[in-house]
């Protein structure tokens, strides 16, 4: 039987997923000693892990070359796409927030606001829902720089502890949305391999649930 392919977002989400799998009881030896390999078997679970960048996880799952993916809600909100979003894995928690210079009222005055962000789709949706016409500038690196340099009035970005904001004289103005890691499934895969995938979903839900109770 062909293994089920699961794309993991490289880095922290990958490590959190590995520890989740280990709690379920899967042998993740290969994944932990991966070297430079990008496709790794988890033999006893009938899984094959693929390591990819966040946005690529969505692309691979959407095209069906991977059956399942683990990716942050931030990436899902920015890139969208058509797949099933079945489990909130509970880790990788942070939030999208609108942040600006401390002590400055973002909403004061009539001028058109400039917003710097790595997530232009999330930002424009947020302001469209408010009925507020803003100009959005896409920034690739540290978005906090943009208001400091005077390019933008505020930023829309991922905030975890808020310490980067604080050290740069910025503060959260408003929450945009909570973020956590999600398990996504290709639509055709779920239908063609329902039993195997539902079993995996069940195990993950159970393990994630137990952890939530502990916390």
């Amino acid at each position: 039987m062909k293994p089920i392919r699961i794309a993991l977002t490289k880095g922290r989400l990958e490590r959190d997923t590995v520890s989740l799998f280990e709690r379920i009881g899967y042998d993740c030896g290969e994944l932990k000693q991966k070297g430079r390999r990008l496709i790794l078997p988890i033999p006893d679970a009938g899984l094959e892990a693929v390591l990819a960048k966040a946005a690529d996880v969505i692309t691979y799952v959407q095209h069906g070359v991977c059956d399942i993916g683990v990716v942050g809600k931030d990436t899902i909100m920015e890139y969208g796409g058509s797949f099933f979003e079945v489990v909130d894995l509970g880790f990788g928690k942070c939030r999208f927030a609108l942040a600006g210079p401390v002590g400055k009222d973002f909403y004061d005055g009539y001028h058109r606001r400039v917003i710097a962000t790595k997530y232009p789709n999330v930002a424009s949706r947020f302001f469209a829902e408010k009925g507020m016409d803003v100009s959005i500038v896409k920034i690739e690196g540290s978005v906090e720089l943009a208001p400091l340099l005077g390019l933008s009035d505020a930023i829309v970005d991922i905030v975890e502890t808020g310490s980067t904001l604080k050290e740069n004289g910025l503060a959260v103005i408003e929450e945009v949305a909570p973020v956590s890691a999600r398990m996504i499934v290709n639509e055709a895969s779920l239908k063609l391999r329902q039993q195997e995938i539902e079993k995996l979903i069940g195990q993950i839900e159970e393990t994630v649930g137990k952890q939530e109770e502990r916390i």
């Binding site: 959407q62 095209h63 069906g64 070359v65 639509e187 055709a188 895969s189 063609l192």
Partner: peptide, 9 residues
């Protein structure tokens, strides 16, 4: 309808 080997409907 879904076909094996095809990720989309």
């Amino acid at each position: 309808g879904y076909l094996a080997g095809h990720g989309e409907t």
